[in-house]
Simulated assay, not measured.
Amino acid sequence: MADLEITYRGTVYPWHCDHMGHMNVMWYVGKFDEATWQLFDRIGLTPAYLREQGRGMVAVDQRISYRRELRAGDVVVVRTGLLEVGAKKIRFCHHMENASTGEQAAVTVITGVHIDTTARRGVALPEEQLAAAQKMITDFDPGM
Rank of each mutant, 00 (worst) to 15 (best):
R9D: 01
G10W: 09
T11S: 09
W15H: 03
H22Q: 01
M23H: 05
M26H: 13
W27C: 04
Y28V: 13
K31W: 11
D33T: 12
D33E: 12
E34D: 04
E34Y: 06
W37L: 07
Q38D: 14
L39T: 09
F40R: 08
L45R: 12
L45T: 15
T46H: 14
A48L: 15
Y49T: 10
L50P: 11
E52A: 08
Q53I: 12
R55K: 07
M57S: 09
V60G: 01
D61Y: 05
Q62N: 05
Y66C: 05
R67Q: 03
L70T: 11
G73H: 09
G73P: 13
D74Q: 03
V75P: 06
T80A: 01
G81T: 09
G81C: 04
G86I: 04
K89E: 01
I90K: 01
I90M: 10
I90S: 07
C93V: 13
H95Q: 03
H95A: 00
M96W: 05
A99M: 06
T101V: 12
T101P: 08
G102E: 05
G102R: 08
T108A: 00
G112H: 14
H114K: 08
I115F: 04
D116Q: 03
R120E: 02
G122I: 15
G122F: 09
V123Q: 00
V123R: 01
A124L: 12
P126C: 00
E128T: 15
Q129E: 10
Q129H: 13
A131S: 10
I137F: 08
I137R: 12
T138S: 06
F140Y: 15
F140I: 06
D141R: 08
P142V: 09
